[in-house]
Write a protein that binds this DNA or RNA. Structure first.
Lengths: 147, 147
DNA sequence: GTCAGAATGACAACATGCTGCAAAACTGGT
DNA sequence: ACCAGTTTTGCAGCATGTTGTCATTCTGAC
């Protein structure tokens, strides 16, 4: 059993994923730095920007697959920094909606101007099919573990 | 440029990788819990166990692609817990070698008894070729970012 | 042998993630 | 309308990772 060919492949993959995660966080920090953001805030502003109608903090957490508290702490700081604002939620007295401020929108636009070329540069020499298969595998594993 | 087909694919992949990373850490914690370990200690004990002859703390950090301090803190705790021991390094007066204690070896063996079936179970329904392509992609990205 | 530069250890500050708990607000079945 | 169960908030504690700084040790070029 220990010699299953997939076993070592999978364990190598898991270790490599840990490492790649660290490198991607560093990349995010590097890209977001000039805009006064960090990797974690980059993730949050992305979710808020794509949900034009406002999302709740637990909603962001679910979208990112993270804990509510981790997101709450970041949105609190970003609200202090004037990137996000909290807006009354007609559907829930306590759970406010998170929206971009004008400045938040500007920062997100500037972020896209860095992030999109980054994405294109880094896939230039990667076959489309490899990206598709890789994404399929990652999603398959998420589905497997996310219960 | 913003409509490059690979751009969205890659950004989706990056977000999915962040999420998968969190799930894998949780899986590691779950597996290691019964052995009194955590995900971070699991990574460290794996590196030490595979390097039968002893490795230095910065060596472990390089193998994991992490900072020296992150590893140092963990090895210090594991040394207190009797899983690792520090041994004089004939090649360097200050930089000691990290080795498994007998108890550390036992724990690693017990870990394998959990980890290996876990790896096999989770790849049962994944085509071998998908694993190979996925690992190739991850390694390609690591190589791209790790400078 | 000497000396500049790299590697290492120790300490500290900080960012990001998790969990647990209690109280308030919402939801849905009766 | 009521009540049980779920969701959300706020607070607290902790694990893990990063960076920065300084002193010590090693290394290699000269």
């Amino acid at each position: 059993m220990a010699h299953s060919p997939k076993r070592k492949l999978f364990l190598d993959l898991v270790l490599s994923l840990f490492r790649l995660n660290g490198l991607l966080v560093a990349e995010g920090d590097r890209m977001a730095e000039a805009l006064g953001l960090t990797s974690a805030r980059w993730k949050v502003i992305g979710v808020v920007a794509l949900a034009h109608s406002g999302v709740t903090v637990p909603g962001i957490a679910r979208a990112l697959g993270q804990s509510r508290q981790a997101v709450q702490r970041i949105t609190d700081v970003m609200e202090q920094d004037g990137l996000l604002r909290y807006q009354d939620n007609p559907e829930h007295k306590r759970s406010v909606l998170v929206c971009l401020t004008d400045r938040g929108q500007e920062v997100y636009t500037a972020l896209r101007a860095v992030q999109d070329p980054w994405a294109i540069d880094n896939t230039e020499d990667v076959p489309l099919e490899e990206l598709e298969t890789g994404l399929q595998l990652v999603r398959r594993l998420i589905y497997k573990f996310d219960r």
